[in-house]
Write a protein that binds this DNA or RNA. Sequence first.
DNA 1: GGGCGTCAGTGACGGTCGTCAAAACCCGCT
DNA 2: AGCGGGTTTTGACGACCGTCACTGACGCCC
Lengths: 230, 230
Amino acid sequence: MTNKNHPCANCSFYEQSLWRPVAGANMSTLARNFTRREMEAGSVLYHQGAPSDGVYCVSRGLFAIRSFGPDGSSSLLRLAYPGELIGYRAFLTGRDHRTEAQALLPSRVCVVAQRDAKQVVRACPEVLTRLAVRCADELDLCHDRIQEAARSPNKERLAQLLEQLMAAHGTKDGRFERMHLPISRQDLADILGVQPETLSRLIKRLQSEGRLRTSGRWIEMPGPMQKHVI
Amino acid sequence: MTNKNHPCANCSFYEQSLWRPVAGANMSTLARNFTRREMEAGSVLYHQGAPSDGVYCVSRGLFAIRSFGPDGSSSLLRLAYPGELIGYRAFLTGRDHRTEAQALLPSRVCVVAQRDAKQVVRACPEVLTRLAVRCADELDLCHDRIQEAARSPNKERLAQLLEQLMAAHGTKDGRFERMHLPISRQDLADILGVQPETLSRLIKRLQSEGRLRTSGRWIEMPGPMQKHVI
DNA sequence: GGGCGTCAGTGACGGTCGTCAAAACCCGCT
DNA sequence: AGCGGGTTTTGACGACCGTCACTGACGCCC
């Protein structure tokens, strides 16, 4: 039994959303008004240092979750695809955002929780459980990333990253267009933790091994697509 | 108003524990029996792959939270000091442990929640909030580590790591004995993500710069102590 | 004491990466 | 077409790190 009043009810990602198991809950206790929000590519949903303004569910598009160091350098911590939740860290802790969420494509988000976390937990503890589990999931991904960073060389990590990006945004023949998914060389380098010059050399090395082809804005890779993990 | 029946009630770390704000809760709904558990140095509280057996609060000693890759290589993900919670990830998600918790010193833990997470959230939602916040905190630390790994060179990270370890276990004059905090060279190298030989050279380089002295099993560092972050 | 295994340190070598600088490229504009 | 600003690529150099091999220190057992 789903709740037709919820903005996610018509999303194809509704099944993954926060709300499926709590369809009968009194929504008004969780957010003043459930709104969708359309975002242009490049616009920012919430900034680093801003106070929590709610939990969002990505229903269309793609978001980059970034963090900026005191010296202005940025790290791309993860990508948020449709069906994923963002903004829950600040919501759970009641502290300011430590990351910024920038739309990489024209995107749409649903506001799934807006009121104070303490009100939410009273009104619907199951929602808090879901948020906590999602937080634990992201922790797992971070642990994986820390481990992999110490082990596999950057060349392999680049190959995996490109496979993942193409699995999400490549066409059926395994071609991945950077301009349609506006990730710059700098962004790719950030993800891998290397400099853009090094990234250029990594790509070249993969090309020379026949594991990757580039033609203009396209990157082509052979092999099967994989599930996304950043 | 504190609950004198709780095993943490007599710990000096009680104030930091999960239980202070919910002292009036009906404890029996959260765990069958609140027990302390004494651990020898080197023994393992929970193994990777084991099902969740509860949430623990470290009340004495020190734990290493490790993860093992499929090839047997290990990463030291973090250290858990007295007052910190461990085991909550498996508890929150209901899935198996992805890490193992090994006592590095003779240690004592309090079992702070043992029943199914769904029962806990019904009995005392505030506890779930605390666990979720703690999970978000660890996520922050992981993000910091990912960012720092990409930025600062290993030499600086080693200097910071030694400062942190000495802040926790060094004597007042800034001497840090490895044998009293049984962290091998391999462990230190794991934390930094380098090989033991490289670690040896890093230490040597810090020595040559006058930023560190070693005499036998001791490592001595000048400068002020810092708060622990792994 | 002698042998043995484990761990820590040292040296040599090659590969990788960061940094700087310059060239090449892309794109919008006039 | 020509120009200017940004991004990407390439080259050269040095620093850093992983790997392998070897040595030395230490503890343990016979």
